[in-house]
Structures are given as structure tokens and as C-alpha cells.
Design a protein around this nucleic acid. Sequence first.
DNA 1: GATGAATGAGAGTTCATTCAT
DNA 2: TATGAATGAACTCTCATTCAT
Lengths: 214, 214, 214, 214
Amino acid sequence: MNELDNLIGDLYEYDDELTAKQRKIIIAAIEAFAEKGYASTSTSEIAKNAGVAEGTIFRHYKTKKDLLISIVGPMVQKFIAPFVIRDMEKVLNQDHESIDDFLRAMLKNRIAFVSKNKLLFKILIQEIPFQPELKELFKKHIGMKVIEKATLIIQHYQEKGQLVDLPPATIIRGIASSIFGFIVTRNLLLPELDWDDEVEMERTIQFILHGIKK
Amino acid sequence: MNELDNLIGDLYEYDDELTAKQRKIIIAAIEAFAEKGYASTSTSEIAKNAGVAEGTIFRHYKTKKDLLISIVGPMVQKFIAPFVIRDMEKVLNQDHESIDDFLRAMLKNRIAFVSKNKLLFKILIQEIPFQPELKELFKKHIGMKVIEKATLIIQHYQEKGQLVDLPPATIIRGIASSIFGFIVTRNLLLPELDWDDEVEMERTIQFILHGIKK
Amino acid sequence: MNELDNLIGDLYEYDDELTAKQRKIIIAAIEAFAEKGYASTSTSEIAKNAGVAEGTIFRHYKTKKDLLISIVGPMVQKFIAPFVIRDMEKVLNQDHESIDDFLRAMLKNRIAFVSKNKLLFKILIQEIPFQPELKELFKKHIGMKVIEKATLIIQHYQEKGQLVDLPPATIIRGIASSIFGFIVTRNLLLPELDWDDEVEMERTIQFILHGIKK
Amino acid sequence: MNELDNLIGDLYEYDDELTAKQRKIIIAAIEAFAEKGYASTSTSEIAKNAGVAEGTIFRHYKTKKDLLISIVGPMVQKFIAPFVIRDMEKVLNQDHESIDDFLRAMLKNRIAFVSKNKLLFKILIQEIPFQPELKELFKKHIGMKVIEKATLIIQHYQEKGQLVDLPPATIIRGIASSIFGFIVTRNLLLPELDWDDEVEMERTIQFILHGIKK
DNA sequence: GATGAATGAGAGTTCATTCAT
DNA sequence: TATGAATGAACTCTCATTCAT
């Protein structure tokens, strides 16, 4: 399973953090959680699909929930961290003259990441409402930081006269909803459709820009 | 619990379709499903919260999944049917001269409905990915019908020169994503925030209109 | 269901002992018990097939076991009583000159009765091992009485020089086994076979006579 | 429980096919099924009597019915196979000059087997009518094979002029009924009686021989 | 480190029985 | 008398977790 192999690479910096069995467990868990949901997946099923003994799972992960967190946790950080740290810094440092460029760069980046990690993304948004630990993680990594930075960026472009004068929070919600909507439609709702990603992404950007540009 | 009482009224036309115990079961089930998810809620818990014997649940609903469907099924129809049948007909009959009016009317309507039925809505979007029966219901009631009608409406306004010349599917996705994003943020992600619904809704409409108007 | 209507007539002397609902309950119970066994038949199933409310069953029969006993109990008496009381008396009063005649009469009689009441017979032999009450009934009505009488009859014919000089108990077991074997094969094991009852019965009698006649 | 230890030995060729816990489960199940019937025995009861956790039963046997089949299935084969394969071959190969010898050998053999496995035999005949799987097994292992072979043997002795000229099917039914009657009386109906097995068996053979010999 | 048999709490479901109507 | 909603105990079966090997 190609997606899953890449994915592991994305989530764990150093391959040797994981034994071969751990990799197999994580891959089996991701597939099962995405397909049936965390609560409806049994550890015995994961063990069987991973080709390991049930006990082996619990040798590496104290509980079933531990396994979930260890899968989804890194995702939260990987998904968010670059957004916050890399891209945003750049913007504020005037790497992108126009908001078009910035938005396009960011959107492409995020969409590519989610497309590569569809299953993980599905698990993440399915389980966040029910796992306080995940919610906490999410808040910690996005919560204030991202919103603060995004607010700064928006104000930055508003001052440049490029953005409509709605409150930043509204704009953030507008942009985030559109991106989220695109990603969800693309990957979860209608994955079987024959999308031309480049074109559709460009259209989504146009839609957003129409919505927020002055 | 006020929301839940309204809700039952919304879902079941005639109060006497339900016995007192059935009402209590459904209310308890909705609360529990929304809070912990369908799979993580036990029927014994529902029974306890409803103040009935566990057997009573199974007298009215053959299985636990039956209970879920009988809760969420009507929601699908109630949420969608009016959208398709009433609003859309009106538009096509020129009830709304400008797209602004139409969009505003529809958005208000949908948002009000979801706000009144937050819990049900949460259950619906959480469980749809895992319950083929729900997916089927959803497709049957939204699937083609809504998209066809929406396409007609968009073409209608495009011909009037009021709408940007993107493909209808893109516009639909844009609008739907924004509405969905608004509803989810408003009700699920940040319900604790102090929203001024009127204002925020108007802003969302502005955002959408910006995005799709010529 | 023809068999069952006759049957009720056989079991209950006076039709007006039973209300219409009781008849329907008993018929439904017999069918279900015979098909799936007493323990695997639910009262709700009986009620449904009988077209009455579940409560109605318990109005007439205090418990499920009561229902069983009230069905099978009369059978025990009806099946046995004539054997003991009528036939045997006749034999001892020299109604049948030869043992051939006696055996033939008795066998025909028993076989006809069981054939008419196949389902009841099946229930009886299936449940006797597990229902002490039935065992008790059986012992009371067959137990000593039948065996004593049969012993007398056998000794009677042995004295006449018509019967082999095995111990009566052995002869009784031989005869009973053969009859039981015939009935079970005919009605339970191979009911779908195309039997010529007259012929097969005569052969069975020949077999028994061969076995016991001097 | 001595009978049960032998029995396990009979059913499973190699002791190490079964773990200690499995043995305990099977023994407890046999006792309970024989005493109260399959349907009226709960798995929790079996677990308690076996001194294992209830879950352990389901680790070894997927369902309760699986447990039943795995107990009774081997019995069907063990009980029947030798009858068909060993004994009958011998007869046809003239090992037994007279039918007396053959019948005596066979009867002794079967009776001994059933006596040793009374409980299993009881379960088998109690559950066959309600378990299609068992019926199938039975048919497959006895069904045609035994009856065909038996027919051959009977014709063999009829040609030798030793047997009465009734149709083989009638003779088979006669013999089988007598044996079945003997076994059932001996082991199930009147087990508490003080039987002299040798003597009674000889008498049963005499009875059968009387019935079928020319 | 890996195994998988064993556990026992708890899951969903069934059922004989009761009782207000 | 007949009903059928309600009950709660008991049922079969699943599961995350433990631990001796």
C-alpha cells in the first residue's frame, strides 16, 4: 500500500524509530480505523491484518487509545506546524508580494499533504470530537498560534489594501471553510469522481479570492 | 432539555406517534450518541438515562442500529426535502429576483434548522461515513435531486448575468463548503464562542456572494 | 391444519373445554415445539402464530411449562390408557384366541394413533428426558400398570404354549422396541418415504411373531 | 468422571489435540448437554463447571453450536465408521460363517461402544432432530453407505438360505429397531435396573434371530 | 521481544412473565 | 377476557488487556 508507506515516512522522521512489526501494526491500524472507525475496530483485527500477535500491539502501545494517539498525534503536528512556522514566516517576511501567490502556495501545500494522507486525515476529523486528548493536541498546535498568525497575515494584506474589510475572524473562517470543504469533497465525499486537481484547485482559489479580495 | 423537545417535534409530525417511553429513549440516545459517538454508547447507558429497562429499547427498535436510523433518518429528509422542494421551486418561479435574496433565504433557513438540531446534525455527519444505510438515505434524498435543482438555479442566475461563469459544480461546492463550514464552526467547533448570529450569517453571505457574483 | 384439528379433538373430550383462542394457542404451540423443540420456542412466537397477544397465553397457562404439560399430558394418558384398560382386558377375557390376532390389533391401534398425532408424539419423546413432570406422568400411567398387565398377557400365552420361553421382560422389551422402532422410522426418521402402511405393518408383526412365537 | 475420560480418548486420537482447558470444557459441556439438553444449557454454566472463564469457551469454539458439533460430530463417525468399514467387510469376506456369529459380534461391539459413551449417545439422539448440521453429518456417514452394505449382507445370507425372505429393508429395520430399542432401554430408559448385560444381550440376539432366521 | 491462551467485564439481544388498561 | 408495553434477568458472544512461556 503505497500511500501508507509514504505516510509512515512523513510521520516519523527517522525510520529506525519503528521496528518492522510496529510499522505493520500502524499501517493495519490506520486502514482499519479509517474504514470502520476507531471504536468499531478491534485490536485482534489489527493484529491479524498486521500479521502479529495481539500481545505485540500492547507491548508497543500501552492501550488501544495510545495507538490511536500515536498515529494521529504526529499528523496534527505535521499538518499544522509547517503552516504556522514555515509558510507564515515567509509571508510576513514579504516572500509573497500578493495574497494570490500566498494563498495558492498554501493551498497547494495543504491539499497535497492531505491527499497523500487521506486515511489519516479521515481518522483525525472523525475522532477529534470524541478524544479529548486529540482536541487538546489540536488546540495546542493550532489553537491560538495559527489563528494569531493568520490574523496578522490578514491584517498585513488588509493594510496593503488587498483584502476586503471584514473582520479577520470572518475571513479566516471563510478561507478555512472553503479549503476544508474542498479537501473533504475531494477526498472523502466524492473521491471516486475524476477530478482534475490542478484546475479545481485553481477554481477554489478563485472562489476564495473573489470572496476576500477588495 | 429544550432543544431536544423541539427536535422531537420537528422529526415526528404527530406527537402520538411516540409513546412517552419512546420519547425518553430517543432523547437519551441522541444525547449519548452526540456526546460519545454511536459505537461508544451502550444500550444499557441509554436505558439508564432514559429511565427505562434495557429491554424496552429493543421492544421499540429491533437493533441498536435501528435506533440510530430512526433518529437520523427523518433528519435527512427534513433537512433536505424543504431545500429541494420548497425553496428551489420558488426560485425557479422567480420568487427571488436577485440571487442575494435567494441565498440569504436559503442560508437562514438551513442554519436555523441546524442550530435547532445541533446534536442530531452532529450525529448525522459523524455516522454517515460508517453507516451504509445512512449513506444510502442521504444519496436518495440529496444525491441527484438537489444537485440537479441547484445546477438549474445557478444556470438560471448565470443566464441573468448575475453569476460568475465558473462551472456550476464548482459554484455548488463553493457555496456548500462555505455553508457547511459556517455551520460546523458555529455549532461544533466553536459553540462556546459568543456569536452574533445575524451578523456572522450576513458576513458569510457576503463572502459567498463575493465569491460567486459577477 | 387437519392433523392438528383432529388431535385437539382426541385430546380434549369436550370441545367446549377450550375457547377458540386456547385452541389456536395449543395448535401453534404444538407446531412450534415439534419443529424447534420446547426450549428453543419462544412464547412470543407461539403468540404470533396463534394470532393472540402474548399475555393471553399466560392467562390460560400459568407458565410456558404448564402449556407443554397441558399439551403432552393428555397424550400420555390417551396413548396408554386404552392399551392398558381396553385391549388388555379383552385379551385376558379371551377375546383374542391367538396371540397373532391380539398383537395385530394392538399394533394397528397404536400405529394409527401415533400417525394421527405425529407432532405430539415427537414432542413427547423429545421432552420426556428433560421434564421430570412428564417422566412422572409417564411412569404413573405406564410404569407398573402396563408392564404388569403385559406380563400377565405374556404368561397367559406362554401357558397356552404359543410363546417362546424367554423371560416376559425380555419379550416385552422385544415387542416394545420393534413397535417403537417401526413408529419412529415411519413417522420421524423416514416420513418422506412412500410407505405402504398395511404391508409394512404386517411385516413388522411377522418379524415380532417370528421373534417370540414358539 | 471415568466415562468421560475414556470418551475423550475415544473421540480424539491424539491427546495433544486438546489443551487441558479444552478437555475440561468438553467434559463439562457433555455432562450439561446430556442432563439438561443443549438448548437449556448456558455457556456460563459450562464455563463454571469447567473451571474456566466464559470467554475461553469462545476462544476454542466460535459459537455454542460449534461446541456441540465438535462434541457430537466425531461420535457420529466413530460410531458408524467401524460398523461400515470393518465389520461389514469381514462378513462379506466370509469371516463369519453363520449369521448368528456376525450378529452377535456386531451387536456386542455397538452396545459396548454406546455403553461406554452413554452421555454422548444421549446428546446425539436428542439433538439430531433439531440440528441440520448433525442430520447432514449423520446422513453422510450412515445414509446410503450403511444401508447399502447391510442390504448386501442380508442378501448374502438370504442366498445362503439362512434368512427369511422378507425385503432387506424390512429386515434392516427390524434388526436396527431391536438394537436401538435394547440400547435405549438399557442406557436411557432403565439405566438404574440391575442388568446382566451378557444374558440380556444374548436374549436380544435370540429375539432378533427368531425374527429373521428361516 | 514476541506470543497467544486466558480472562472477565460488558456488549447487544431475547425472553418468560407481569400488570395497567 | 384479552391485550401488549414493560420488565430485568439471563443469554451468547466480543473485547481490550494481561502474563506465563
